[in-house]
Design a protein around this nucleic acid. Structure first.
Lengths: 182, 182
DNA sequence: ATTTGATATATCGTTTTGATATATCGTTTT
DNA sequence: AAAACGATATATCAAAACGATATATCAAAT
């Protein structure tokens, strides 16, 4: 089966708000939704080409450029917006999680306990740093909830804060349990 | 860059406990670690072939077969075990999460509020069902924590229970917030 | 002048998925 | 007894995504 490119929907969703180039799209992904979705140039540029061919996006006027190579900006077409809405209205959503941390922990019995504790500590450090960021975003967004879009952003950030706090709580419990073994 | 096949480590980890066929491996993945890691036949069989060529696994005696085509069982070699341990001892772990639910919510402003609420409800139903399962696993594992391996399984399941409970709490908060809009 | 660094597009090999094709064997149906 | 069926199992392929690298362009610094 073909044509199940999720990256298409990410791009269409972003273009529904503003015209963007491939490079811009990458930046938007990296600093807005990266904790629950990622995207690489290797998927973004081919997607833009394919969607332009299919009439879901089209080349748009490029605003002023702040140095460097000229941008190729895209806008969403009516067909593109329809495709986006169809996807949004389908409640089926695949949440695909790959925790290499848990994978290593699951096989922890193969080596010594300290190895697993090290893995948890590394995870904990990463999550702590990200959580600080998320809390800052959350605090800023909470001041501008009169804007409807901001409510949606706020909800996704809150999801992150809630789950990350759960992660940290689990880290402590897990380390305590492992500590009794060593 | 090459040779960063995570599926290799999944297979080696499973083979460290017992000899398995590709089909067995798929079943182990599906009903032990599927909530934090997945694997398809399309990655398992090629991985087994490649690792056999590299001497990380080897064909092993097949136990009795309960009907159907004959199995090809594999065992882990000393080289395979070394590769597994090297990976385990590296604390760096990539946790790659793709929540299509959050993606749809993030772009919720494009359609009406009810669409977003429907998406959250679908997520909530799925998570509720999975959480019941995880809690059962957790209860069963908690009775056999004298076995060292079971402690590791217990910890991963506890991670699931904790995060899933967080998800459900968030679902209620999110729906309440969206309810005020409609 | 030319090197550097930032911006930006494009492409390539590798990994993974999800679907489908193929093989094998015991059991049931006719 | 032969054929059909269903469960078990291996194998393969196109499409999607990643991550790394190559290429292009321009401004500012040296």
């Amino acid at each position: 089966m073909a044509k199940d490119r999720k990256i298409d929907m990410v791009i269409l969703g972003l273009l529904a708000h503003e015209n963007l180039s491939g490079y811009d799209i990458k930046k938007r992904i990296d600093n807005s939704i990266s904790f629950f979705w990622k995207g690489s140039f290797g998927s973004i540029y081919p997607s833009l080409s394919a969607m332009e061919k299919d009439g879901l996006v089209q080349k748009a006027d490029t605003g002023e450029n702040s140095g460097g190579r000229e941008k190729i900006c895209y806008s969403i077409t009516p067909d593109g917006k329809n495709a986006l809405i169809s996807w949004l209205e389908d409640t089926k959503a695949v949440n695909d999680l790959k925790y290499e941390t848990l994978l290593k922990l699951f096989f922890g019995g193969v080596t010594d306990v300290q190895t697993s504790i090290n893995t948890i500590n590394a995870f904990e450090n990463e999550i702590s740093a990200s959580l600080e960021m998320l809390k800052m975003y959350q605090a800023n967004l909470s001041k501008v909830l009169d804007n409807k879009d901001h409510i949606y952003y706020y909800l996704t950030v809150s999801f992150g804060v809630e789950t990350y706090e759960g992660y940290l709580k689990w880290c402590e419990e897990a380390k305590e349990m492992l500590g009794k073994l060593s």
